[in-house]
C-alpha cells in the first residue's frame, strides 16, 4: 500500500519539476512578446513601403523592395516610434526610444540610407520625441513633436508624454528650432505642408476652455500652424463639426482632408474607427471605409492611392495591424500583402 502512494507522489513530484524547468526555459519577459507590425509605416516616392515589425519583441525596419530581412533591428528593450521617408525616398528618418518610457531616457533620432544601408545617429534628445516628418520643400529639414514632460496628470492613468510642441532639426547646420509654445496635453499626426511654411497637427480645441466642463466638451480637431507666426493657427477640419477627429491626411493643394473618426460601435461596445473625407469646396463629408475595425494613419502614395492601417484586434491584448490601400474616393480597398 505504502509503495503505491510512493509511486504516485514521485510521479507528481517529477511532473512538477519538469513543468518548473520548462517554465524557466520558456518564460518570456513582456518585452519579448510583441509580434507583427507595430503600426508604424511610411510610403516612399518610389512606392516602397517601410514598416516596423516586431520579431519576438525586437523592433526592426523592413522595406518592400525585395529584402526579407530587417534593414535595422533593435534590442527588445527598444522600439521605433515613428519613421519618415525623405522626399526622394532615399533616406529614412526614425525615432528610437525605450519601450518603457521614463522621464530620463529620452529619444534618439537616426537616419538610414535605404540604398547603401548606412545608418547613423542624427541627434539625441533628453525629452521624448513621438513623431517626425521631413519637410517636402527642404530635404535638410526634419520636423518633430517633442513632449516637455512625462507624467500622469490623473492618478488612474499611467504616465504619458505631455506638454507637446513643434520643433525642427536642420541636418546641414545641426541646429534645433522650437516653433510653438503651446505645451499641449496631446499633439499628434504631424504633417508638413507641401506648399507653404506651415505644419498640420491634430490637437484638442481647448484654447477657449475655462472650466473642466469646457475641456470635456471641447473637440479634437486639425490645426494648421504657420511656422513664422505660430500664434495665428487655424482649424482646417470642419470647424463646426461635432465629431472628434484623430488621425488625418491633408491632400495636396488642400483638395480634400482625409480623417479618422469614430464610425460606429461594435457589438462588444468597442468603437469602430473609419476614414472619412471632407471636401473644402463643397463642405461635404463622406465616409470612405466601412471595415468595422480600427482604421488609421492615412498616407498618400506616389500612385495617388491612400495607404492606411487596419487593426483587426483593436482594444484586444495585442494589436493585429495590416496595411491597406484605396483610391481617393474610397473605392478599390485592398490589403497589401507584405
Amino acid at each position: 500500500m505504502n509503495k503505491k502512494y510512493g509511486v504516485l507522489l514521485s510521479v507528481i513530484g517529477v511532473a512538477t519539476v519538469i513543468c518548473i524547468v520548462l517554465g524557466l526555459v520558456f518564460n518570456k519577459s513582456e518585452n519579448e512578446k510583441q509580434q507583427g507590425l507595430s503600426g508604424v509605416f511610411d510610403v516612399s516616392v518610389e512606392g516602397t513601403i517601410a514598416y516596423v515589425e516586431f520579431e519576438n519583441g525586437k523592433a526592426g525596419i523592413y522595406l518592400t523592395d525585395g529584402r526579407t530581412d530587417p534593414v535595422v533591428q533593435f534590442p527588445v528593450e527598444q522600439t521605433i516610434l515613428d519613421i519618415s521617408f525623405s522626399n526622394d525616398g532615399k533616406t529614412l528618418a526614425y525615432i528610437v526610444s525605450d519601450k518603457e518610457l521614463d522621464e530620463g531616457n529620452g529619444s534618439e533620432v537616426r537616419i538610414l540610407n535605404t540604398k547603401t544601408n548606412s545608418d547613423e545617429q542624427v541627434f539625441l534628445s533628453q525629452d521624448i520625441i513621438t513623431e517626425l516628418a521631413f519637410d517636402p520643400k527642404n530635404p535638410a529639414l526634419l520636423f518633430y513633436l517633442q513632449a516637455g514632460v512625462f507624467t500622469n496628470y490623473s492618478p488612474i492613468t499611467g504616465k504619458q508624454p505631455h506638454d507637446f510642441d513643434v520643433y525642427s532639426y536642420d541636418l546641414t547646420d545641426k541646429t534645433q528650432k522650437r516653433y510653438t509654445d503651446l505645451k499641449k496635453y496631446s499633439m499628434r499626426s504631424l504633417q508638413v505642408s507641401e506648399t507653404d511654411a506651415s505644419v498640420f497637427v491634430q490637437m484638442d480645441d481647448d484654447e477657449k476652455a475655462q472650466s473642466a466642463d469646457d475641456i470635456f466638451a471641447s473637440k479634437q480637431r486639425i490645426f494648421q500652424i504657420p511656422l513664422d507666426t505660430p500664434e495665428e493657427k487655424s482649424i482646417v477640419s470642419n470647424p463646426a463639426g461635432e465629431v472628434d477627429i484623430y488621425d488625418f491626411l491633408v491632400l495636396p493643394d488642400r483638395e480634400e482632408l482625409v480623417y479618422q473618426a469614430v464610425g460606429g460601435t461594435g457589438a462588444n461596445g468597442v468603437f469602430e474607427y473609419e476614414l472619412f473625407s471632407y471636401n473644402y469646396e463643397t463642405y461635404e463629408t463622406k465616409q470612405l471605409t466601412r471595415l468595422k475595425e480600427y482604421t488609421a494613419k492615412p498616407i498618400l502614395g506616389p500612385d495617388g492611392k491612400i495607404y492606411f492601417l487596419v487593426d483587426r484586434n483593436f482594444a484586444g491584448r495585442q494589436p493585429d495591424f495590416h496595411i491597406y490601400r484605396m483610391s481617393k474616393g474610397g473605392k478599390d480597398i485592398e490589403e497589401i500583402k507584405l
Binding site: 517554465g23 520558456f26 518564460n27
Partner: peptide, 8 residues
C-alpha cells in the same frame, strides 16, 4: 509566455 511557477 508566462510561467506561473509559484501558483503551480
Amino acid at each position: 509566455g508566462d510561467a506561473h511557477i509559484i501558483w503551480l
